[in-house]
Simulated assay, not measured.
Amino acid sequence: MKHLIRFFTAFFLALTLLTAVGCASTQKQEGSGEYVDDSVITSKVKEAILEEPTLSSAEINVETFKGIVQLSGFVSSSADIHKAVAVARSVGGVKSVKNDMRLK
């Protein structure tokens, strides 16, 4: 009976560890918690850009991976590029901003 209890204990411990490792992130892939965090950051950056009256939020795309925000799309001036980058950097949780925006 003791062997059976030890077997089930070891089995459930191994199952728990495998589940935890399966949710962990790698260098090129996010864990489930990081994905949710990045989605929140993306939403906050989009909202901040939308609230900025000088920027056309429909033409700026926002993607986030592990706290690094990438801005892409087309804007009218280099001042708009600098403003969008500054707005994105001001959002909490943003580690850095990659600028891939282009002038029209």
Rank of each mutant, 00 (worst) to 15 (best):
A58I: 07
S32K: 10
D80T: 09
L15D: 06
K104Y: 10
V91P: 05
G92D: 15
D80N: 14
A48E: 14
C23D: 10
S39E: 03
C23E: 10
F11K: 04
S72A: 09
P53E: 07
L18E: 09
K83A: 08
V87R: 07
L50K: 07
G92R: 14
D100S: 11
M101W: 07
K28C: 04
K66R: 05
V75A: 05
A58V: 07
F65A: 02
D100Y: 07
C23S: 02
T64Q: 02
V94F: 01
G22S: 01
A14R: 06
T42G: 03
K44S: 10
V91E: 00
A20S: 12
V75W: 09
V62A: 08
N61T: 09
F11L: 15
E51H: 02
F11W: 09
Y35W: 08
R6E: 11
D100V: 05
A10Q: 07
T19F: 15
F12P: 00
V85L: 03
N99I: 00
K44M: 08
D100I: 02
F74I: 06
R102E: 15
S72C: 02
I68C: 04
K98Y: 04
K28A: 10
D37Y: 00
V40R: 00
S77E: 09
S76F: 05
V87I: 11
L15M: 14
V62G: 01
G33L: 00
A86C: 04
K83H: 09
T16M: 15
G33N: 12
F65N: 09
T42W: 06
P53A: 03
K95Y: 06
E59T: 10
S72E: 13
A86V: 03
F7T: 14
V75H: 11
R6V: 09
T26D: 04
K98D: 00
V45T: 02
T42Q: 12
S43V: 04
K95L: 08
G31W: 00
Y35K: 11
T16L: 15
I68Q: 12
M101V: 07
A58Q: 11
S96I: 05
R6K: 11
I5R: 08
T16R: 05
F11T: 13
Y35C: 03
H82V: 12
K95A: 05
L15F: 06
E52Y: 00
A58E: 14
N99G: 12
R102D: 14
H82Y: 09
V87Q: 10
I81E: 03
V97P: 01
V40Q: 04
S90F: 00
T42R: 05
L4H: 10
T42S: 13
G67P: 03
S57N: 08
T9D: 06
S32L: 15
F65K: 14
T9M: 14
D37N: 04
L55E: 05
V87Y: 00
L4W: 10
A20Y: 08
F11C: 08
C23W: 14
T26P: 02
T9C: 11
S78V: 11
K66L: 09
S76P: 03
V85T: 05
S76I: 03
S78E: 15
L15T: 14
R6Q: 14
L71S: 01
R102T: 10
